[in-house]
Simulated scan of single mutants.
Amino acid sequence: MARSFRQWCGALFSAIWLLGLGGCSPVKLLNALTPEDTFTRTSGIAYGEDPRQKLDVYVPRRPLVDAPVVVFFYGGSWNSGDRGDYAFVGEALAARGIVAVLADYRLYPQVRYPLFLQDGARAVAWTRAHIATFSGNPQRLYLMGHSSGGYNAAMLALDGQLLGAEGMTPADIRGWIGLAGPYDFLPIENPDVRPVFFWPDSPPQSQPINQVSRGAPPALLIAATKDDLVNPTRNTGGLARKLREAGVPVQDVYYSRPNHVTLVASLSRPLRGLAPVLDQVVGFIRHTPAQ
């Protein structure tokens, strides 16, 4: 245990040193420290006509049959983000035998709610239709997201109209994982988010907590107790309680060491000492029964 902690500290020190030396962003550093011999990546696959409607597929390097599949959505307050910044997420999942799909989606001000969710639904539908060619099993399909991407995953799993427009239902999703997601945030306090949801006339149906129904896919909700951007008690705790009341299988897990940002960063190899988020995600995927 002490040896692994020293290794983590050494990697973190190296990342900080490189940051100061080269002026790189922390995300670029995490990706620079991410190995590339655990996966093969197919980049820039179009799932729609817009330049933002593209995705990357990370396939485990070792041979597999009918691997589980995770479609991952990044955060960024629905006004920023790029799938390439999250290569460390694709590697983390692929190294554990999971096919990972990282999807871009249109952002504000190009679109507002619910159009970016429609993009997510199209990306999921593309995955279900084509992932078998990448050794993934479309019957073992999971959604996952961090921050506003966690919101996207939640809405796709809970609001049946979104996947319904693509010929799917939430029953086609084996389960979903939310990392520090906002699931109950009206009235909106963040000024950058307000126009995305037509503030002050934000529709109540835009909230995942108002979309819960019996029969929704099982959920794993992970949050940081020190999150000062998305209140973990109201959002993760509140949604977990609502799901349990509806009889939906849910696990909610809280970690004290990460914050809002480093919760997803703990999926990367240099920062896994912060919290066993990857182990939780993989365990959930491995042990979620078929519906």
Rank of each mutant, 00 (worst) to 15 (best):
R194S: 04
G178P: 11
S213V: 13
A180W: 05
T225C: 14
W176R: 05
W199G: 00
N210S: 05
V212K: 00
P182I: 05
L179D: 06
Y183L: 09
A216E: 00
N210D: 02
P208K: 04
A216L: 04
Y183D: 05
F185E: 12
F198I: 02
P195E: 03
V193N: 05
P187K: 09
P208S: 03
D184E: 10
G215W: 03
W176M: 06
P208H: 04
L221N: 12
Q207K: 00
V196Q: 10
R214H: 07
P217G: 01
P191M: 04
R194M: 13
I177A: 13
P200L: 04
P218Y: 01
P195H: 05
P187E: 07
P182S: 05
V212R: 01
T225F: 14
L186S: 11
F185A: 12
F197H: 12
L220R: 06
R214C: 01
N190K: 07
A223C: 09
P195C: 08
G181D: 07
L221W: 15
A216Q: 02
E189Q: 11
D184C: 09
Y183V: 06
D192P: 03
Q205D: 13
F185C: 11
A216R: 04
T225I: 14
I177N: 12
I188Q: 07
A223P: 14
I188L: 11
V212L: 00
G215H: 01
L186C: 09
D192S: 08
W199A: 11
P182W: 07
G175M: 01
R194E: 05
P187Q: 08
Q207Y: 06
A219E: 10
L186M: 13
D201R: 14
F185S: 11
P217T: 00
Q207N: 01
A216M: 06
Y183S: 04
L186F: 12
G178E: 13
R174C: 02
G215I: 07
L221G: 15
I209R: 03
F198S: 10
D192I: 09
G175D: 03
W176E: 02
Y183F: 10
A216T: 08
R194L: 07
W176D: 02
Q207E: 14
S206H: 08
D201W: 09
A224S: 15
F185D: 10
P218W: 00
I222Y: 15
A180H: 05
Y183N: 03
I222P: 15
F197N: 13
L179Y: 10
P208A: 04
L186A: 09
P191C: 05
R194D: 01
S202M: 13
A224Q: 07
V193D: 04
F197D: 10
D192Y: 07
V212G: 10
T225E: 15
F185Y: 15
I222R: 12
W176A: 10
G181Y: 08
A224G: 13
I209V: 14
V193S: 05
L220S: 14
F198Q: 06
P195W: 05
V193C: 06
W176K: 03
L221K: 15
P208I: 01
N210T: 09
R214D: 04
P203I: 09
L186H: 15
V196A: 08
L220Y: 14
F185M: 13
R214Y: 01
T225G: 14
Q207I: 00
R174V: 00
A219Y: 02
Q211T: 01
